[in-house]
Design a protein around this nucleic acid. Structure first.
Lengths: 219, 219
DNA sequence: GTCGCCGATTCTGTCTACAATCTGCCCAAC
DNA sequence: GTTGGGCAGATTGTAGACAGAATCGGCGAC
Protein backbone atom coordinates (compact mmCIF):
# COMPACT_ATOMS: atom_id res chain seq x y z
CA UNK A 1 0.00 0.00 0.00
CA UNK A 2 0.91 3.68 -0.25
CA UNK A 3 2.80 2.56 -3.32
CA UNK A 4 3.05 6.02 -4.73
CA UNK A 5 5.25 7.57 -2.09
CA UNK A 6 7.01 4.57 -0.64
CA UNK A 7 10.29 5.49 -2.26
CA UNK A 8 10.52 8.62 -0.17
CA UNK A 9 9.64 6.69 2.94
CA UNK A 10 7.04 9.26 3.82
CA UNK A 11 5.84 7.19 6.67
CA UNK A 12 8.19 7.49 9.60
CA UNK A 13 10.42 4.52 10.36
CA UNK A 14 8.94 1.87 12.56
CA UNK A 15 10.16 1.65 16.12
CA UNK A 16 12.82 -0.93 15.33
CA UNK A 17 14.37 1.23 12.63
CA UNK A 18 14.15 4.29 14.80
CA UNK A 19 15.88 2.50 17.66
CA UNK A 20 18.64 1.39 15.33
CA UNK A 21 19.04 4.93 14.01
CA UNK A 22 19.36 6.48 17.45
CA UNK A 23 21.66 3.70 18.57
CA UNK A 24 23.93 4.35 15.62
CA UNK A 25 23.92 8.05 16.33
CA UNK A 26 25.03 7.41 19.90
CA UNK A 27 27.64 4.79 19.10
CA UNK A 28 29.05 6.79 16.20
CA UNK A 29 29.37 9.81 18.44
CA UNK A 30 26.86 12.06 16.71
CA UNK A 31 25.27 12.46 20.09
CA UNK A 32 27.85 13.42 22.70
CA UNK A 33 28.02 11.73 26.09
CA UNK A 34 25.67 13.32 28.61
CA UNK A 35 23.83 15.11 25.83
CA UNK A 36 20.16 15.42 26.61
CA UNK A 37 17.85 13.53 24.33
CA UNK A 38 14.59 15.44 24.19
CA UNK A 39 11.76 13.33 22.95
CA UNK A 40 10.10 16.03 20.91
CA UNK A 41 13.39 16.93 19.21
CA UNK A 42 14.17 13.35 18.26
CA UNK A 43 10.61 12.99 17.10
CA UNK A 44 11.10 15.88 14.68
CA UNK A 45 14.63 14.86 13.62
CA UNK A 46 13.76 11.28 12.77
CA UNK A 47 10.22 11.95 11.61
CA UNK A 48 8.65 9.58 14.08
CA UNK A 49 5.96 9.99 16.67
CA UNK A 50 6.91 10.80 20.19
CA UNK A 51 5.54 7.47 21.34
CA UNK A 52 7.94 5.71 19.02
CA UNK A 53 10.86 7.80 20.27
CA UNK A 54 9.85 7.00 23.80
CA UNK A 55 9.81 3.29 23.12
CA UNK A 56 13.19 3.50 21.43
CA UNK A 57 14.68 5.36 24.38
CA UNK A 58 13.44 2.69 26.79
CA UNK A 59 15.01 0.06 24.63
CA UNK A 60 18.32 1.90 24.52
CA UNK A 61 18.19 2.44 28.26
CA UNK A 62 17.95 -1.33 28.58
CA UNK A 63 21.02 -1.62 26.41
CA UNK A 64 22.89 0.74 28.71
CA UNK A 65 23.36 3.39 26.06
CA UNK A 66 20.93 5.88 27.55
CA UNK A 67 20.31 7.06 31.09
CA UNK A 68 16.74 7.76 32.08
CA UNK A 69 16.10 10.01 35.06
CA UNK A 70 12.46 9.86 36.21
CA UNK A 71 10.58 12.98 35.15
CA UNK A 72 13.85 14.44 33.96
CA UNK A 73 14.33 12.85 30.62
CA UNK A 74 17.00 10.88 28.86
CA UNK A 75 20.62 11.57 28.14
CA UNK A 76 23.41 9.74 26.41
CA UNK A 77 25.06 7.60 29.04
CA UNK A 78 28.66 8.58 29.69
CA UNK A 79 30.97 5.67 30.37
CA UNK A 80 33.63 6.62 32.88
CA UNK A 81 37.11 5.16 32.83
CA UNK A 82 36.28 2.97 35.83
CA UNK A 83 33.23 1.68 34.07
CA UNK A 84 35.15 1.02 30.88
CA UNK A 85 37.57 -1.07 32.91
CA UNK A 86 34.72 -2.95 34.54
CA UNK A 87 33.29 -3.65 31.12
CA UNK A 88 36.63 -4.97 29.94
CA UNK A 89 36.87 -7.22 32.99
CA UNK A 90 33.47 -8.68 32.22
CA UNK A 91 34.34 -8.97 28.56
CA UNK A 92 37.45 -10.88 29.53
CA UNK A 93 35.42 -13.52 31.31
CA UNK A 94 32.95 -13.86 28.47
CA UNK A 95 35.40 -13.73 25.60
CA UNK A 96 37.50 -16.40 27.29
CA UNK A 97 34.42 -18.57 27.25
CA UNK A 98 33.71 -17.81 23.60
CA UNK A 99 37.30 -18.31 22.51
CA UNK A 100 37.47 -21.68 24.24
CA UNK A 101 34.30 -22.83 22.50
CA UNK A 102 35.48 -21.41 19.19
CA UNK A 103 38.76 -23.29 19.50
CA UNK A 104 36.83 -26.49 20.09
CA UNK A 105 34.38 -26.00 17.25
CA UNK A 106 36.41 -24.43 14.48
CA UNK A 107 36.08 -26.18 11.11
CA UNK A 108 38.82 -26.62 8.47
CA UNK A 109 37.26 -23.94 6.28
CA UNK A 110 37.26 -21.57 9.19
CA UNK A 111 40.86 -22.41 9.98
CA UNK A 112 41.69 -21.27 6.47
CA UNK A 113 39.68 -18.10 7.01
CA UNK A 114 41.51 -17.36 10.23
CA UNK A 115 44.88 -18.02 8.62
CA UNK A 116 44.03 -15.46 5.98
CA UNK A 117 42.88 -13.02 8.64
CA UNK A 118 46.20 -13.49 10.39
CA UNK A 119 48.08 -12.45 7.26
CA UNK A 120 45.84 -9.46 6.66
CA UNK A 121 46.29 -8.34 10.23
CA UNK A 122 50.07 -8.40 10.04
CA UNK A 123 50.01 -6.73 6.64
CA UNK A 124 47.84 -3.88 7.90
CA UNK A 125 50.17 -3.20 10.83
CA UNK A 126 53.26 -3.35 8.64
CA UNK A 127 51.65 -0.88 6.26
CA UNK A 128 50.72 1.38 9.15
CA UNK A 129 47.06 1.19 8.19
CA UNK A 130 45.62 1.77 11.65
CA UNK A 131 42.03 2.12 10.52
CA UNK A 132 42.17 -1.09 8.51
CA UNK A 133 43.89 -2.82 11.41
CA UNK A 134 41.19 -1.68 13.80
CA UNK A 135 38.54 -3.01 11.47
CA UNK A 136 40.25 -6.38 11.17
CA UNK A 137 40.49 -6.62 14.93
CA UNK A 138 36.79 -6.09 15.27
CA UNK A 139 36.20 -8.65 12.58
CA UNK A 140 38.33 -11.14 14.49
CA UNK A 141 36.46 -10.53 17.72
CA UNK A 142 33.16 -10.95 15.98
CA UNK A 143 34.12 -14.14 14.16
CA UNK A 144 35.32 -15.74 17.38
CA UNK A 145 32.01 -14.94 18.98
CA UNK A 146 30.09 -16.36 16.07
CA UNK A 147 32.13 -19.55 16.12
CA UNK A 148 31.37 -20.02 19.79
CA UNK A 149 27.63 -20.30 18.98
CA UNK A 150 27.05 -19.07 22.48
CA UNK A 151 23.98 -16.88 22.03
CA UNK A 152 23.84 -15.73 25.63
CA UNK A 153 27.44 -14.60 25.76
CA UNK A 154 27.20 -13.04 22.31
CA UNK A 155 24.21 -10.95 23.28
CA UNK A 156 25.89 -9.58 26.37
CA UNK A 157 29.16 -8.93 24.60
CA UNK A 158 27.45 -6.96 21.87
CA UNK A 159 25.76 -4.76 24.41
CA UNK A 160 29.00 -4.16 26.25
CA UNK A 161 30.86 -3.48 23.04
CA UNK A 162 28.40 -0.77 22.04
CA UNK A 163 28.88 0.88 25.40
CA UNK A 164 32.66 0.94 25.35
CA UNK A 165 33.32 1.54 21.69
CA UNK A 166 34.35 5.11 22.36
CA UNK A 167 37.14 4.16 24.79
CA UNK A 168 38.18 1.30 22.53
CA UNK A 169 38.51 3.70 19.65
CA UNK A 170 40.51 6.26 21.56
CA UNK A 171 42.99 3.59 22.55
CA UNK A 172 43.46 2.14 19.09
CA UNK A 173 45.15 5.26 17.78
CA UNK A 174 47.71 5.66 20.53
CA UNK A 175 51.19 5.58 19.01
CA UNK A 176 52.87 2.23 19.57
CA UNK A 177 49.66 0.58 20.66
CA UNK A 178 49.17 -1.36 17.45
CA UNK A 179 52.58 -3.01 17.79
CA UNK A 180 51.69 -4.42 21.19
CA UNK A 181 48.17 -5.34 20.37
CA UNK A 182 48.93 -7.15 17.13
CA UNK A 183 51.10 -9.67 18.94
CA UNK A 184 48.30 -10.38 21.36
CA UNK A 185 45.76 -10.77 18.60
CA UNK A 186 48.01 -13.11 16.66
CA UNK A 187 48.42 -15.18 19.80
CA UNK A 188 44.65 -15.45 20.05
CA UNK A 189 44.38 -16.43 16.41
CA UNK A 190 47.10 -19.04 16.71
CA UNK A 191 45.44 -20.60 19.74
CA UNK A 192 42.11 -20.88 18.00
CA UNK A 193 43.70 -22.16 14.78
CA UNK A 194 45.55 -24.78 16.83
CA UNK A 195 42.23 -25.72 18.46
CA UNK A 196 43.74 -25.22 21.87
CA UNK A 197 41.02 -23.89 24.19
CA UNK A 198 43.31 -23.42 27.15
CA UNK A 199 45.79 -21.37 25.13
CA UNK A 200 42.93 -19.32 23.70
CA UNK A 201 41.70 -18.48 27.16
CA UNK A 202 45.17 -17.42 28.24
CA UNK A 203 45.68 -15.34 25.13
CA UNK A 204 42.35 -13.53 25.56
CA UNK A 205 43.07 -12.92 29.22
CA UNK A 206 46.52 -11.55 28.49
CA UNK A 207 45.16 -9.31 25.77
CA UNK A 208 42.36 -7.78 27.79
CA UNK A 209 44.61 -7.32 30.78
CA UNK A 210 46.95 -5.42 28.51
CA UNK A 211 44.08 -3.30 27.19
CA UNK A 212 43.01 -2.47 30.74
CA UNK A 213 46.52 -1.38 31.66
CA UNK A 214 46.80 0.74 28.55
CA UNK A 215 43.47 2.40 29.31
CA UNK A 216 44.55 3.09 32.89
CA UNK A 217 47.81 4.60 31.69
CA UNK A 218 45.89 6.82 29.29
CA UNK A 219 43.84 8.17 32.19
CA UNK B 1 -5.59 14.37 44.37
CA UNK B 2 -8.21 11.67 44.65
CA UNK B 3 -7.45 11.74 48.35
CA UNK B 4 -10.71 10.08 49.17
CA UNK B 5 -10.05 6.79 47.51
CA UNK B 6 -6.27 6.63 47.60
CA UNK B 7 -6.28 3.83 50.10
CA UNK B 8 -7.84 1.58 47.52
CA UNK B 9 -5.17 2.60 45.05
CA UNK B 10 -7.78 3.64 42.54
CA UNK B 11 -5.17 5.09 40.29
CA UNK B 12 -3.29 2.30 38.56
CA UNK B 13 0.29 1.70 39.60
CA UNK B 14 2.90 3.71 37.78
CA UNK B 15 4.87 1.98 35.06
CA UNK B 16 7.75 1.09 37.37
CA UNK B 17 5.46 -0.66 39.82
CA UNK B 18 3.59 -2.36 37.03
CA UNK B 19 6.84 -3.62 35.52
CA UNK B 20 7.91 -4.97 38.89
CA UNK B 21 4.55 -6.69 39.35
CA UNK B 22 4.66 -8.41 35.98
CA UNK B 23 8.29 -9.34 36.49
CA UNK B 24 7.45 -10.95 39.81
CA UNK B 25 4.54 -12.83 38.24
CA UNK B 26 6.86 -14.24 35.60
CA UNK B 27 9.74 -15.08 37.92
CA UNK B 28 7.45 -16.60 40.55
CA UNK B 29 5.84 -18.76 37.90
CA UNK B 30 2.35 -17.27 37.99
CA UNK B 31 2.70 -16.84 34.26
CA UNK B 32 3.81 -20.05 32.61
CA UNK B 33 6.60 -20.16 30.03
CA UNK B 34 5.36 -19.42 26.52
CA UNK B 35 2.13 -18.07 27.89
CA UNK B 36 0.83 -15.25 25.77
CA UNK B 37 0.75 -11.89 27.48
CA UNK B 38 -2.10 -9.94 25.93
CA UNK B 39 -1.84 -6.26 26.58
CA UNK B 40 -5.55 -5.71 27.14
CA UNK B 41 -5.74 -8.60 29.61
CA UNK B 42 -2.79 -7.40 31.66
CA UNK B 43 -4.24 -3.94 31.53
CA UNK B 44 -7.41 -5.22 33.17
CA UNK B 45 -5.64 -7.56 35.62
CA UNK B 46 -3.26 -4.95 36.99
CA UNK B 47 -5.58 -2.00 36.64
CA UNK B 48 -3.23 -0.06 34.42
CA UNK B 49 -3.62 1.51 31.02
CA UNK B 50 -2.60 -0.45 27.96
CA UNK B 51 0.15 2.06 27.28
CA UNK B 52 1.67 1.35 30.66
CA UNK B 53 1.48 -2.39 30.07
CA UNK B 54 3.11 -1.90 26.73
CA UNK B 55 6.01 0.01 28.23
CA UNK B 56 6.44 -2.61 30.91
CA UNK B 57 6.52 -5.40 28.33
CA UNK B 58 9.23 -3.61 26.36
CA UNK B 59 11.25 -3.25 29.52
CA UNK B 60 10.87 -6.92 30.37
CA UNK B 61 11.78 -7.87 26.82
CA UNK B 62 15.02 -5.96 27.37
CA UNK B 63 15.58 -8.01 30.50
CA UNK B 64 15.11 -11.21 28.53
CA UNK B 65 12.02 -12.28 30.43
CA UNK B 66 9.58 -11.67 27.60
CA UNK B 67 9.71 -12.42 23.89
CA UNK B 68 8.20 -9.89 21.55
CA UNK B 69 7.16 -10.94 18.07
CA UNK B 70 6.40 -7.95 15.84
CA UNK B 71 2.67 -7.55 15.36
CA UNK B 72 2.16 -10.80 17.16
CA UNK B 73 2.44 -9.84 20.74
CA UNK B 74 4.41 -10.88 23.76
CA UNK B 75 4.85 -14.16 25.54
CA UNK B 76 6.76 -15.34 28.58
CA UNK B 77 10.17 -16.34 27.35
CA UNK B 78 10.85 -20.03 27.85
CA UNK B 79 14.39 -20.85 28.83
CA UNK B 80 15.43 -24.17 27.34
CA UNK B 81 17.85 -26.50 29.05
CA UNK B 82 20.58 -25.51 26.58
CA UNK B 83 19.96 -21.89 27.34
CA UNK B 84 19.98 -22.49 31.07
CA UNK B 85 23.36 -24.11 30.67
CA UNK B 86 24.63 -21.20 28.60
CA UNK B 87 23.46 -18.86 31.29
CA UNK B 88 25.29 -20.86 33.92
CA UNK B 89 28.45 -20.79 31.84
CA UNK B 90 28.25 -17.03 31.60
CA UNK B 91 27.44 -16.78 35.27
CA UNK B 92 30.52 -18.85 36.03
CA UNK B 93 32.77 -16.34 34.29
CA UNK B 94 31.16 -13.39 36.00
CA UNK B 95 30.82 -14.88 39.46
CA UNK B 96 34.45 -15.90 39.38
CA UNK B 97 35.26 -12.27 38.78
CA UNK B 98 33.01 -11.13 41.60
CA UNK B 99 34.27 -13.75 44.04
CA UNK B 100 37.88 -12.81 43.36
CA UNK B 101 37.13 -9.15 44.02
CA UNK B 102 35.07 -10.02 47.08
CA UNK B 103 37.94 -12.08 48.49
CA UNK B 104 40.27 -9.13 48.00
CA UNK B 105 37.96 -6.55 49.52
CA UNK B 106 36.26 -8.34 52.39
CA UNK B 107 36.41 -6.49 55.72
CA UNK B 108 36.75 -8.02 59.19
CA UNK B 109 33.09 -7.34 59.93
CA UNK B 110 32.12 -9.08 56.74
CA UNK B 111 34.37 -12.01 57.57
CA UNK B 112 32.35 -12.38 60.77
CA UNK B 113 29.13 -12.19 58.77
CA UNK B 114 30.32 -14.88 56.39
CA UNK B 115 31.43 -17.12 59.23
CA UNK B 116 27.95 -16.87 60.67
CA UNK B 117 26.44 -17.59 57.28
CA UNK B 118 28.63 -20.67 57.06
CA UNK B 119 27.20 -22.00 60.32
CA UNK B 120 23.62 -21.25 59.28
CA UNK B 121 24.15 -23.00 55.98
CA UNK B 122 25.42 -26.17 57.58
CA UNK B 123 22.69 -26.04 60.21
CA UNK B 124 19.96 -25.75 57.57
CA UNK B 125 21.26 -28.76 55.67
CA UNK B 126 21.63 -30.82 58.83
CA UNK B 127 18.06 -29.96 59.75
CA UNK B 128 16.90 -30.87 56.27
CA UNK B 129 15.44 -27.39 55.80
CA UNK B 130 15.73 -27.23 52.03
CA UNK B 131 13.78 -24.03 51.61
CA UNK B 132 15.85 -22.25 54.24
CA UNK B 133 19.01 -23.65 52.70
CA UNK B 134 18.00 -22.41 49.28
CA UNK B 135 17.37 -18.97 50.70
CA UNK B 136 20.75 -18.88 52.42
CA UNK B 137 22.44 -19.87 49.19
CA UNK B 138 20.84 -17.01 47.38
CA UNK B 139 21.85 -14.70 50.19
CA UNK B 140 25.43 -15.90 49.88
CA UNK B 141 25.49 -15.32 46.14
CA UNK B 142 24.07 -11.88 46.57
CA UNK B 143 26.46 -10.83 49.31
CA UNK B 144 29.45 -11.95 47.28
CA UNK B 145 28.24 -9.83 44.42
CA UNK B 146 27.72 -6.84 46.66
CA UNK B 147 31.17 -7.20 48.14
CA UNK B 148 32.70 -7.21 44.68
CA UNK B 149 31.38 -3.67 44.08
CA UNK B 150 31.42 -4.54 40.42
CA UNK B 151 28.32 -2.75 39.15
CA UNK B 152 28.62 -4.00 35.60
CA UNK B 153 28.90 -7.65 36.56
CA UNK B 154 26.19 -7.31 39.18
CA UNK B 155 23.72 -5.89 36.70
CA UNK B 156 24.27 -8.68 34.22
CA UNK B 157 24.15 -11.38 36.88
CA UNK B 158 20.87 -10.12 38.22
CA UNK B 159 19.30 -10.27 34.80
CA UNK B 160 20.58 -13.76 34.18
CA UNK B 161 19.46 -14.91 37.59
CA UNK B 162 15.90 -13.79 36.93
CA UNK B 163 15.89 -15.72 33.68
CA UNK B 164 17.13 -18.98 35.11
CA UNK B 165 15.50 -18.98 38.50
CA UNK B 166 13.00 -21.63 37.40
CA UNK B 167 15.72 -24.16 36.52
CA UNK B 168 17.65 -23.24 39.64
CA UNK B 169 14.62 -23.93 41.73
CA UNK B 170 13.81 -27.24 40.15
CA UNK B 171 17.33 -28.42 40.84
CA UNK B 172 17.43 -27.35 44.46
CA UNK B 173 14.83 -29.86 45.52
CA UNK B 174 16.38 -32.91 43.91
CA UNK B 175 17.08 -35.50 46.60
CA UNK B 176 20.73 -35.61 47.54
CA UNK B 177 21.47 -32.37 45.76
CA UNK B 178 21.80 -30.31 48.93
CA UNK B 179 24.50 -32.59 50.29
CA UNK B 180 26.69 -32.02 47.26
CA UNK B 181 25.97 -28.35 46.89
CA UNK B 182 26.59 -27.45 50.51
CA UNK B 183 30.18 -28.64 50.32
CA UNK B 184 30.73 -26.48 47.27
CA UNK B 185 29.18 -23.47 48.89
CA UNK B 186 31.23 -23.90 52.02
CA UNK B 187 34.34 -24.09 49.86
CA UNK B 188 33.38 -20.76 48.30
CA UNK B 189 32.77 -19.24 51.69
CA UNK B 190 36.06 -20.50 53.05
CA UNK B 191 37.99 -19.10 50.12
CA UNK B 192 36.43 -15.67 50.51
CA UNK B 193 36.88 -15.72 54.27
CA UNK B 194 40.53 -16.64 53.76
CA UNK B 195 40.84 -13.74 51.31
CA UNK B 196 42.19 -16.08 48.69
CA UNK B 197 40.96 -14.87 45.27
CA UNK B 198 42.46 -17.78 43.37
CA UNK B 199 40.79 -20.34 45.60
CA UNK B 200 37.50 -18.44 45.34
CA UNK B 201 37.65 -18.58 41.55
CA UNK B 202 38.32 -22.30 41.63
CA UNK B 203 35.53 -22.93 44.12
CA UNK B 204 33.00 -20.98 42.05
CA UNK B 205 34.07 -22.74 38.90
CA UNK B 206 33.79 -26.16 40.51
CA UNK B 207 30.40 -25.31 41.90
CA UNK B 208 28.87 -24.08 38.68
CA UNK B 209 30.36 -26.93 36.73
CA UNK B 210 28.67 -29.24 39.18
CA UNK B 211 25.38 -27.39 38.77
CA UNK B 212 25.62 -27.68 34.99
CA UNK B 213 26.23 -31.41 35.22
CA UNK B 214 23.33 -31.86 37.59
CA UNK B 215 21.05 -29.91 35.26
CA UNK B 216 22.15 -32.00 32.30
CA UNK B 217 21.52 -35.18 34.22
CA UNK B 218 18.08 -33.94 35.10
CA UNK B 219 17.32 -33.44 31.42
C1' DG C 1 23.59 42.57 47.26
C1' DT C 2 21.91 38.15 48.18
C1' DC C 3 18.48 34.85 49.26
C1' DG C 4 14.14 32.79 48.78
C1' DC C 5 9.59 32.53 46.79
C1' DC C 6 6.41 32.26 42.96
C1' DG C 7 4.83 32.03 38.18
C1' DA C 8 5.73 30.74 33.21
C1' DT C 9 7.73 27.50 30.27
C1' DT C 10 9.47 23.19 28.93
C1' DC C 11 9.43 18.56 29.00
C1' DT C 12 8.00 14.08 30.47
C1' DG C 13 4.26 10.68 31.97
C1' DT C 14 -0.14 8.90 30.90
C1' DC C 15 -4.37 8.05 28.70
C1' DT C 16 -7.85 7.34 24.95
C1' DA C 17 -8.99 6.73 20.32
C1' DC C 18 -7.92 5.15 15.76
C1' DA C 19 -5.41 2.53 12.08
C1' DA C 20 -2.85 -1.51 10.59
C1' DT C 21 -1.98 -6.27 11.02
C1' DC C 22 -2.62 -10.94 12.03
C1' DT C 23 -5.43 -15.29 13.03
C1' DG C 24 -9.02 -18.38 12.53
C1' DC C 25 -13.15 -19.67 10.37
C1' DC C 26 -16.41 -20.31 6.80
C1' DC C 27 -17.76 -21.15 2.32
C1' DA C 28 -17.19 -22.04 -2.41
C1' DA C 29 -14.79 -24.41 -6.06
C1' DC C 30 -12.35 -28.17 -7.79
C1' DG D 1 -12.68 -34.35 0.73
C1' DT D 2 -9.48 -30.94 0.24
C1' DT D 3 -7.76 -26.48 -0.97
C1' DG D 4 -7.94 -21.51 -1.62
C1' DG D 5 -9.97 -17.00 -1.00
C1' DG D 6 -11.96 -13.84 1.76
C1' DC D 7 -14.47 -12.11 5.65
C1' DA D 8 -14.77 -11.18 10.81
C1' DG D 9 -12.83 -10.88 15.27
C1' DA D 10 -9.03 -10.10 18.08
C1' DT D 11 -4.67 -7.89 19.06
C1' DT D 12 -0.96 -4.94 18.30
C1' DG D 13 1.06 -0.43 16.45
C1' DT D 14 0.62 4.62 16.13
C1' DA D 15 -0.95 9.14 16.88
C1' DG D 16 -2.45 12.99 19.31
C1' DA D 17 -4.03 15.36 23.47
C1' DC D 18 -3.97 16.33 28.26
C1' DA D 19 -2.07 16.46 32.92
C1' DG D 20 1.84 16.69 36.13
C1' DA D 21 6.65 17.47 37.46
C1' DA D 22 10.99 19.99 36.96
C1' DT D 23 13.55 24.06 35.59
C1' DC D 24 14.43 28.77 34.88
C1' DG D 25 13.30 33.44 35.16
C1' DG D 26 11.98 37.52 37.61
C1' DC D 27 10.29 39.86 41.76
C1' DG D 28 10.25 41.12 46.41
C1' DA D 29 12.19 40.94 51.20
C1' DC D 30 15.82 41.13 54.28
Amino acid sequence: MTDVLDEQSVKGPAVADLTAAIRRAIVDGEFAPNQRLIEADLSATFGASRAAVRTALFELAGDGLVDRLPNRGSRVRAISLEEAIEILEVRAGLEELCAAKAAERISPAEVAEFTRLRQDLLAAVTAGDLLGYSGLNQQLDQRIRELSRHATAIGILERLHAQSVRHQFRLAFQPGRAGVSVREHVAILDAVIARDPQAAVEAIRAHLRSVIEALRALG
